[in-house]
Design a protein around this nucleic acid. Sequence first.
DNA 1: GAGAATTAGTGTAAAAAATACACATTTAAA
DNA 2: TTTAAATGTGTATTTTTTACACTAATTCTC
Lengths: 244, 244
Amino acid sequence: MTDLNNFFKSAFTVDNVIFGFDEADLKVLLIKRGEEPYKDTWALPGYFVYPNENLDEAAGRVLEELTGLQNVFLEQVKTFGAVNRHPFGRVITVAYFSLVKINAYNVQAASIASDAEWHSVSDVKDLPFDHMEILKACFNRLKWSIRTRPVGFELLPPKFTLTELQHLYEAILETPLEKRNFRKKILSMNLLIDLEESQEGVAHRPARLYQFDPEKYRQFLSEGFIFELKETKKRDNRRKLQEV
Amino acid sequence: MTDLNNFFKSAFTVDNVIFGFDEADLKVLLIKRGEEPYKDTWALPGYFVYPNENLDEAAGRVLEELTGLQNVFLEQVKTFGAVNRHPFGRVITVAYFSLVKINAYNVQAASIASDAEWHSVSDVKDLPFDHMEILKACFNRLKWSIRTRPVGFELLPPKFTLTELQHLYEAILETPLEKRNFRKKILSMNLLIDLEESQEGVAHRPARLYQFDPEKYRQFLSEGFIFELKETKKRDNRRKLQEV
DNA sequence: GAGAATTAGTGTAAAAAATACACATTTAAA
DNA sequence: TTTAAATGTGTATTTTTTACACTAATTCTC
């Protein structure tokens, strides 16, 4: 144990599941791999962790090289290290997901990728390595995170309508929500600023614009409140026979 | 990218936060390190991941070498890889926690440890490396897990009383619970078998013994129910002034 | 500029869940 | 037989969740 060099060492990477939200659909940014193995296949972006780099930094770098974006929401999800997950040797990867405002995204030709493209999460069926498993783990974590912390706003433009917010929740949770109850719940947390502005350029009654207020959220937390959108729980609909 | 050998490789370990529950206290199994760095200091058990070993297997091996136990509940929590977390070089570690029935535990002299001992989690204040941070992350995950999945039973003997179960929840959640409501909630989930036996050898009214039924839990899940013990949420006690 | 189309925005009653709370019961020990 | 100790139970109140349908505001079309 005294000399680390005597020990087995593994190649060490991060993979980053980059989520975006475009009107009605949750998207994930995939790259077309430029090199073997799986050349020309759509895959999750990822790269080696450099010796002088923390894990979060590596994940942030992968994202920045691909999109040009900095200071983006990033969360570590799980580490995948099955012995045979990479055909060329032992490669252990830490999976992250990040949330980007899809409009702020700029395609850049990253060295590793010959191409990058948004795909609807629900359409992604085949990915190389164990990337399907990684995507699922990150998607599940996102489902969880959006119910317990105000992270949904990371996927929306700074000004948004409550309907847009609801559509985002519906896309991530993969379930329809009831409009009045959703609005009541969200507004009752008092985390949004009503901008007293309206949408423009829509062919119907324009909606009010809101903004998430991180300062109000800090306050909310310091007062001991908990952000929570309940998981839709199946009810027990069994009823006793009624007497007539 | 084609030749993994050209890339930086890191030493790669697992650390395992082994929890046990002893009557009233949540405990963690620490080892006294037998080697530098931090020789003779209490620390979390951990070891290198072998080339032919998956991560879960490595964590299970660490546990088995230390306690002799197999098939124990194990959950991956988070990977820690700060550049300078280990003084001898870059060491990235995947943190797991496991839940053991403290009575089933057998001390074994593990090669890495000169000693192993249960410590009350609340008493552990100093640990080497970033082990305090790892312990906290695992403890927080356990708090979460015990509220959302029936994992508490892993820490209790197969037959237990509802009072023991409540004490376990209180120890992990670090908050007192109301007896009647706790029992009502737990029993209403219908996951326990009432063994129609009683405690023996206690100097007061003996309590009924129960057993967790994994088969009932599978049923419960397949019917779409969700295991959930609500987080105690701070209430808003502000009241409007009353008219007299 | 009248009417149609479209989406925004709102309130309330009913059901379910969570909470607060106190005493009788059972056993072993003295 | 009494005492000590922990078990086990029921109900009323409050809070939260759910279900549900119409009016309002705007643009577009004719």
